[in-house]
Structures are given as structure tokens and as C-alpha cells.
């Protein structure tokens, strides 16, 4: 049995290599790392609103250094048109009058009050810090987590299906029907290979983008969640490849999954846009667990692990049945 299993693994490895899967995975890793270092981290921040002061008579004496003085009201108007979030203060007649373009009611309130506060800067105040990360580390973990999720959901899922469709096209699945090899080994070899690839990918992404020091604390938790997601997606890809007629049909399913499954998960998990039904979305929980692993928040709920194990067992059962059906059909 061991010999059969390694034989299957070697063959699947060669199939993946000839399909350039490893090349694509490596390329993705390089691209993502470059994007994180030279793209995402450079522009993922937002400065507070600019405040422009028109005070020709110099009536405002205690002005913060954050305020930008302007020479005329016309200049202030032009700056406000360009700078959507900017706030102007017209102190031409000695009494400050706040001028700003509307955004949302509450934000406008804050913008106006903030601008006025800069005319009376108090002592420097530093908020109390209750966390351990800084913005850069948070951004690194955020984007690494998201890209890892995308990679496993999209590329891994695609990879296993493309290998299977190739085998279907070559007709060798029907040959396996008459070989003395268990279907479980046939499924297992592919799933294991993709699992190993995904774990290696996750390790590289974490070590290179989060840093060796931080990665040491979170890597094991990240790898556990990666393994869960990888197993789910590999088995789902296997099932889709068995049930769908050709790769073209599969591409459709892939589009739907990538777009409609991933989008609500990202929106809910990364922004304050919350959808009431999101808790019924299975990928939401997996994504949240992966994110919690990155932020060292621990995933201790036994219910989550029990559900995940049952899902994997169920998917494996469906994959086995689908393979048996396909072998009968093709044979």
C-alpha cells in the first residue's frame, strides 16, 4: 500500500510540474511579496484631514503646526475643492468660521470640531496602547492572510481540478478502475500533495512578509488553519472535477466561487460592513480563524474544529463516491 501511495504521489507531482503548477505558485509568491513590500505597505495608511487657515490679521495666536496657512479665501476654496476631506477656517474678521464640503453628518461634525481644536492646541496627549502590533505589522499580517486565503481558495482549487481534468482527458481514470489500487489512495495522494504545497506556500508567505521574529509565534497556528482550508478546497476541487464535464464548465464554477464566495467574506471580515447572514457562510469562519491565527488571537472553540472535521469527512465521502461513479462511467 505504501508503495502504491508513493507511486501515485510521484505521478501526481509530475503532473503538477508539467502543468506548471509549482511555477505558478512560486510566481504568485514572488508577486505577492513584491506587492506587499513595494505596494500595499507604502499606501495603506490615511492621514487626518488637512486644515487650512485664512487669518490675514493674525488674530489666532496659538495655532498648531498642523494647520496650513493660506494667503486668500480664493486659495482656500481651491484647496478645499481639490482636498475632499480638508477643512477651511476663515478667521478674516477675527472670529473663526469653519468651512467644509459635506461628507457624512457625523464625520463633518468631527472635522469641524477637530479643526477648531487646532486653534487652541493643548498639551500633547498620547492614547493608551492596549495591543502589541503597530500599523505596519498589522498591515503585513492583514494582507498576508488575505493573499494566502485567495491563493488557497483560487489557485489550489484550480490546480487540483486541472490535474484531474487532464487525467480525464487522457482517459487514465478508467485505467485506475482496473488497477489494484484503492480509491482512497488515489484521492489521498492528490490531496496530500496540494496540502504540502499549500503549507510550504503559507510558511514562505508568513516568514517573508511577517518577519522571522513574529512568524515564530504564529506559524504553527497559521499552518493548522491553512491545512484546514487546503483540505476543504482540495476536496471541493476534486468533487467539482469529477462531477463537471470539462474544464470550461469548471472555470465557471471557479469564477462563481472566487467572486461570490470570497467577496462577502472579505467585506465582512475586513470592514465594518456586516451582513446578518454571514455567520452561516462556512468560509467566513475559516477565514476568521486564519486571521485570528495571524494575529495570535487563538482559535480555541471546539465546535469549530468538530464542524471542520465533519465537513472534511463529508467532502471526502462525496469525493470517493464521485470518483467511483466516474470510474464506472468512464470504464
Amino acid at each position: 500500500m505504501k508503495k502504491s501511495f508513493w507511486s501515485l504521489c510521484r505521478k501526481d507531482c509530475r503532473m503538477m510540474a508539467s502543468g506548471k503548477f509549482f511555477f505558478v505558485a512560486l510566481g504568485s509568491f514572488v508577486l505577492y511579496t513584491l506587492f506587499i513590500r513595494f505596494g500595499y505597505l507604502q499606501f495603506m495608511d490615511m492621514e487626518i484631514y488637512n486644515v487650512y487657515l485664512y487669518d490675514p490679521a493674525g488674530t489666532q495666536t496659538e495655532v498648531s503646526s498642523l494647520v496650513h496657512p493660506v494667503a486668500s479665501l480664493k486659495e482656500m476654496d481651491a484647496l478645499l475643492v481639490e482636498d475632499a476631506n480638508g477643512v477651511g477656517i476663515d478667521a478674516g474678521d477675527g472670529r473663526p468660521r469653519v468651512v467644509l464640503y459635506t461628507g457624512s453628518a457625523k464625520l463633518d461634525c468631527h472635522r469641524a470640531d477637530y479643526a477648531l481644536s487646532l486653534l487652541h492646541p493643548g498639551r500633547e496627549y498620547v492614547p493608551e496602547i492596549v495591543g502589541s502590533d503597530n500599523l505596519e505589522m498589522k498591515n503585513r499580517k492583514d494582507i498576508t492572510c488575505e493573499l494566502l486565503f485567495i491563493e488557497i481558495v483560487a489557485v489550489g482549487f484550480l490546480g487540483i481540478a486541472s490535474v484531474l481534468f487532464k487525467e480525464k482527458q487522457m482517459g487514465v481514470i478508467r485505467v485506475h478502475a482496473i488497477l489494484p489500487v484503492r480509491k482512497s489512495l488515489f484521492i489521498g495522494s492528490k490531496v496530500l500533495l496540494f496540502l504540502v504545497t499549500d503549507l510550504v506556500f503559507a510558511s514562505l508567505m508568513t516568514l517573508c512578509n511577517v518577519g522571522l521574529a513574529e512568524a515564530g509565534d504564529i506559524l504553527s497556528a497559521v499552518l493548522i488553519q491553512t491545512a484546514i482550508l487546503s483540505l476543504i478546497m482540495a476536496l471541493t476541487g476534486f468533487i467539482c472535477a469529477m462531477l463537471l464535464r470539462d474544464f470550461k464548465q469548471f472555470s465557471l464554477a471557479y469564477l462563481v466561487i472566487a467572486l461570490f464566495v470570497a467577496t462577502p467574506v472579505f467585506l465582512s471580515a475586513n470592514t465594518s460592513v456586516k451582513m446578518a447572514w454571514i455567520h452561516f457562510h462556512p468560509f467566513y469562519h475559516v477565514y476568521r480563524s486564519l486571521k485570528n491565527a495571524f494575529f495570535d488571537r487563538g482559535v480555541t472553540s471546539p465546535v469549530y474544529y468538530i464542524c471542520v472535521v465533519w465537513v472534511i469527512i463529508l467532502l471526502y465521502g462525496i469525493a470517493w463516491t464521485a470518483l467511483a461513479r466516474e470510474m464506472r462511467k468512464e470504464g
Binding site: 490615511m46 477637530y114 498620547v126 492614547p127 492596549v130 505589522m137 498589522k138
Partner: peptide, 19 residues
């Protein structure tokens, strides 16, 4: 109170809020 990983706009807002 902040966690320390917020955007600059949040830092500034939190720093000026007591005032």
C-alpha cells in the same frame, strides 16, 4: 485607548479627543 496598529487618522483623532 488604541491597540497601536491604527491608521494615522485614528491616532490623531484619538490624541485630540480629550481636548
Amino acid at each position: 485607548l488604541l491597540s497601536g496598529d491604527e491608521w494615522a487618522i485614528i491616532w490623531q483623532a484619538a490624541s485630540t479627543l480629550p481636548q
